[in-house]
Amino acid sequence: MSFYTSLNGLKNAQTDLGVISHNIANAETNGFKKSRTEFADIVVGSAFTNPRMIIGVGATVESIAQNFSLGPVEQTGSALDMAIGGDGFFTTRNVITNQLLYTRNGGMTVDGDGFITDGSNNRLQVFPTDATGAITSNTPTDAQIPASNGVDAAGNPIEFAGITVGADGSIIATYTDASNLSVGKVILASFIAPQGLKQIGSSNWVTTGISGAPSYGQPGTGQYGSLLSGAVERSNVDIAEELVSLITAQRNFQANAKAIDTSTQITQTVIQLRT
């Protein structure tokens, strides 16, 4: 039995090492959230077993839990770089699958068609607004900046000049004639159980039955958190903490390997006695 107990220990330590390595590898990934491995002990017994005679047979990986604590915020000066000061998530849409994605990485850019996108060309979702900036619908829509805002007296197009994002999520496009146009208001999503979100890479998550459905709102209201333009949230991985955990996991692996080696030596001794 000791062989299988220690073998489970080796597998658990290997899983722990993999999780820690993944954390370290993403120490510079904007919006990344670290994970930790949680273990549970295994015992053998039944309703008729004497409680004093129950035997432990090792441990198992109970879960790999995500940690959504806030990472450090880095100032970038770019208006479309946004950071959330709370528990909310940016909402984007995959243009190929139409699937809604949720991310803490607010590093956005504008593509050739005027859509505000992340690094994977997923389109930022906003609440549509009227000319005064008032929300006209609670249905998420793609954020798109018109290339021009009409024509001037000479018939020349009034071209796009710049963009600003307010603390309330208002995206305002500015044009060469000093006119402004409301593009929409940034949508933030909140979940009753964010630890149940499924990671799909590129600092994106999708909903599951565990996370529950998202609730949408504006920055600075309710549980959605504040919005800071000109900054991005970095990874919440603490390298020093991960290196200590790495050493612990390595020692755990070595100890289980030593236990297997000891069991092998005992077995060989018993076999030699019989022969």
Score class of each variant (00 low, 15 high):
Val19Lys: 14
Gly106Lys: 01
Gly196Met: 02
Ile266His: 02
Thr60Glu: 14
Gln265Gly: 00
Phe127Tyr: 11
Asp142Trp: 09
Ile266Glu: 05
Ile135Thr: 07
Phe90Val: 04
Phe32Leu: 08
Val244Gln: 00
Asn105Gly: 04
Asp41Pro: 05
Pro128Glu: 00
Asn236His: 10
Ser35Gln: 15
Asn98Ile: 08
Glu242Arg: 09
Asn23Phe: 11
Glu233His: 05
Gln272His: 05
Met108Pro: 11
Ser245Pro: 11
Gly169Ser: 00
Leu10Tyr: 01
Val232Tyr: 01
Val237Tyr: 15
Thr275Ile: 05
Gly107Met: 09
Phe160Gln: 06
Ala255Tyr: 10
Phe39Leu: 08
Ala131Gly: 08
Ile84Gln: 10
Phe115Arg: 14
Asn98Pro: 12
Asp111Phe: 14
Ala47Thr: 14
Asp81Cys: 04
Gly114Lys: 01
Leu17Asp: 08
Ser182Cys: 02
Ser179Trp: 11
Gly119Tyr: 13
Phe191Gly: 01
Ile187Tyr: 04
Ser203Glu: 07
Gly162Pro: 01
Val237Met: 13
Ala27Lys: 13
Ile42Phe: 07
Met53Arg: 11
Asn138Val: 08
Ser179Cys: 03
Thr269Lys: 11
Thr248Lys: 12
Ala25Lys: 07
Asn50Thr: 03
Asn8Ser: 13
Val19Ala: 13
Ile239Arg: 15
Asn98Val: 04
Glu38Asp: 14
